[in-house]
């Protein structure tokens, strides 16, 4: 603990005066048509958005996609969407998910400005499910679209209930070789957002 006390006391000694913490209630954007804007943003980050009326329609839309049809194994965390071949809750070691073909996730909210979807850690039997499958499908309610990240954090209320979660925007990607965009670096090679309602 010697380091801790030394660091804290030297920080206190050196602390410069600073402005008050700014209030963030006056920033943000709005869009006339949130679902349309979300669709554009999802496309811009390399994903695909499909609008469906209800979960049954989401299921039908997903089953028609090659990522579902060709998947050797499917985990679905959204009851009724996708033909699950594996119960992730019964998997003890996430390493067993290494060859998972498709995972259907529940997105708690979607951000129209940047196409990101918030995935709650509590919705995942294993955190690896957000990154390890070859393909991802994320089911989000149309009522859960917020315009931007400010609105997203306001709705998530993380200080009230701190918890693991991630914003996921499209499939995994890299441009580390001569800035050529390549989809599917380590995580999902495709990401389909099923917008319900």
């Amino acid at each position: 603990m010697a380091a801790r006390d030394r660091i804290l006391s030297s920080l206190r000694r050196a602390a410069p005066p600073g402005p008050p913490l700014p209030v963030l209630d006056r920033v943000g954007v709005s869009f006339p048509d949130l679902p349309a804007r979300l669709g554009e943003a999802v496309a811009a980050v390399g994903g695909v958005m499909i609008r469906v009326a209800d979960l049954a329609a989401a299921d039908a839309a997903l089953r028609a996609l090659p990522v579902h049809r060709d998947a050797r194994s499917v985990v679905s965390l959204v009851p009724g969407v996708g033909a699950a071949t594996l119960d992730a809750a019964a998997v003890r070691d996430p390493h067993e998910l290494a060859h998972l073909g498709l995972c259907v996730l529940r997105g708690a909210l979607a951000v129209a400005e940047n196409g990101a979807v918030w995935i709650e850690g509590a919705s995942l039997p294993h955190h690896a499910l957000a990154v390890i499958p070859e393909h991802l499908a994320v089911v989000v309610d149309a009522a859960a679209i917020v315009p931007d990240l400010h609105a997203a954090y306001a709705r998530l209320d993380l200080p009230g209930r701190p918890r693991w979660g991630l914003f996921l925007a499209g499939p995994s990607k890299t441009a580390d070789i001569e800035q050529s965009l390549v989809i599917g670096a380590h995580g999902a090679r495709s990401s389909t957002l099923l917008l319900v309602g």
Binding site: F167, L168, A169
Partner: peptide, 8 residues
């Protein structure tokens, strides 16, 4: 617009 993963 944002990184693909922003994990908390």
């Amino acid at each position: 617009p944002v990184t693909t993963y922003a994990t908390h």
